[in-house]
Each structure stands twice: as structure tokens, then as C-alpha cells.
Design a protein around this nucleic acid. Structure first.
Length: 210
DNA sequence: GATTGGATCTACT
DNA sequence: GTAGATCCAATCG
């Protein structure tokens, strides 16, 4: 089976799913399929780790200093992909949430690869399935996600988020990874004990307070 | 126009 | 545990 039937547009979440509380969206996204279509090729995996970035009051949210060309998609309608480049070498994949005009998004931090694994291995140069999509920078490499995905709908031909009816493992929360201000908010969601979840790292700034 | 720091990863000590 | 890679957007002058 090629997986195209399993990941049909009919199984995708509509924008309404994203136009809710970001914390609910981040929680509900765990376990669902993230699907990338490259022509006939399908790359997919189960989302196992997310983080919420919510509004101008959240110092870690890109939208907290207002709208700029870079973060404009965050202010747009829910249900779109917000992809940005950081640290000189990494793309980050986010899903825009809440209502239009309110800057919020869910960062996809880790995925358990399920379909097209051999292509992901080729891109990553790593063979351990647990490590292929562990970490937000790694999963965008594995799935071939780049700047051209910014603003794409999450129920479209290239990008798709589909419901997975399987029962979900226990969900845990924690502070967000790599965040210096606002890190104490428990806005990271992940499957407990799942091997594909990224390691927790504190904010990198040396001056970070406890 | 220059500076600074970042929602990271890997490799090395 | 810590450093270096590497680029871009935001900020300041």
C-alpha cells in the first residue's frame, strides 16, 4: 500500500480545528499524522511532541513585538503552516492557531516516522528511526520542509494533518525547550517515554534566570 | 550600514 | 558541559 488512501484530504482537520485555544490544539495534535506529499512520494509520521506560542503577552512568541514580514503568517487565519529559519541552519515548522489577527502557533518538535522512512534516512544521513525526526530542525530536514512551505494550508496537496484514531499514550507537559523568557510556562506537550521525543534542554542564554 | 542574538544540532573535551 | 557552524531578521544609529 502506498498510503495515499490513508492520508486523504477527507481525513484532514479543517481550519476550525486550529482556530481554538492554542494549548488545546497543541495537546490534540499529539498522535496525529503529519503528511508531506512530493509528487507521488508520501512522507508521514505521528506527531509526538509540540509546543505552544501564544500572543503578544508571551515573550517567547515571535508575535509578541507585533507584526513583521517574517511573522506575518502567525497573524493570519488558523490552519496555515508558519515556517521560519533560525540559528543559521534550521527551519522550524509551526501550525497557526487561534483567530485571525491573534499571533499564536504550535511548534512541531518531533515526529515518529511511519511512511517514506527510507527517503528520510537519505536526507538525514541517520538510520536510527528514533532519531530521524527528533527535534524541530531535524524533522524539517527529513520531511524536506523549507521556506516554500510558509503559508501553506494544513489541508492541502503538499501538506496535510490527518486524524489518527489509534489510542494515545500518556501525555506529559513541561517548560518549553530553548526558551529564555517565559520558559516556565508548561506549554510543551509530549508522549511520556516515547523514544522519538527530543531531549529537554534549558534555554541557552548564559544569563538565563532560574 | 553594523550589530546582535536566536523556538538548534552535532561533535568534541 | 561547552563550542562552533552559519544566516537572517530585528534593532539601533
Amino acid at each position: 500500500m502506498d498510503g495515499t488512501g490513508q492520508f486523504s484530504l477527507e481525513g484532514a482537520y479543517p481550519p476550525d480545528f486550529y482556530g481554538r485555544s492554542t494549548l488545546k490544539v497543541a495537546h490534540d495534535l499529539l498522535g496525529q499524522y503529519l503528511v508531506v506529499r512530493e509528487g507521488q512520494r508520501i512522507l508521514a509520521g505521528r506527531i509526538v511532541e509540540t509546543e505552544a506560542y501564544i500572543g503578544e503577552d508571551d515573550p517567547a512568541c515571535h508575535g509578541h513585538r507585533g507584526r513583521t514580514p517574517r511573522n506575518a503568517v502567525m497573524f493570519g487565519p488558523p490552519g496555515l503552516a508558519y515556517v521560519y529559519f533560525t540559528y543559521g541552519n534550521h527551519f522550524m515548522l509551526n501550525f497557526v492557531s487561534e483567530k485571525e489577527g491573534f499571533p499564536a502557533a504550535v511548534l512541531i518538535r518531533a515526529v515518529e516516522p511511519t511512511t517514506g522512512i527510507k527517503w528520510m534516512i537519505k536526507r538525514r544521513g541517520v538510520t536510527d528511526p528514533d532519531r530521524i525526526c527528533r527535534g524541530p530542525g531535524n524533522l524539517t530536514v527529513a520531511l524536506g520542509i523549507n521556506r516554500s512551505f510558509n503559508g501553506l494550508p494544513l489541508a492541502g496537496p503538499r501538506l496535510l494533518v490527518c486524524r489518527n484514531p489509534a489510542r494515545r499514550p500518556p501525555i506529559k507537559t513541561s517548560g518549553r525547550v530553548g526558551v529564555n523568557e517565559g520558559w516556565e510556562r508548561p506549554w510543551r506537550f509530549f508522549f511520556r517515554d516515547h523514544p522519538c521525543v527530543s531531549a529537554y534542554r534549558k534555554g541557552t542564554k548564559t544569563g538565563r534566570k532560574e
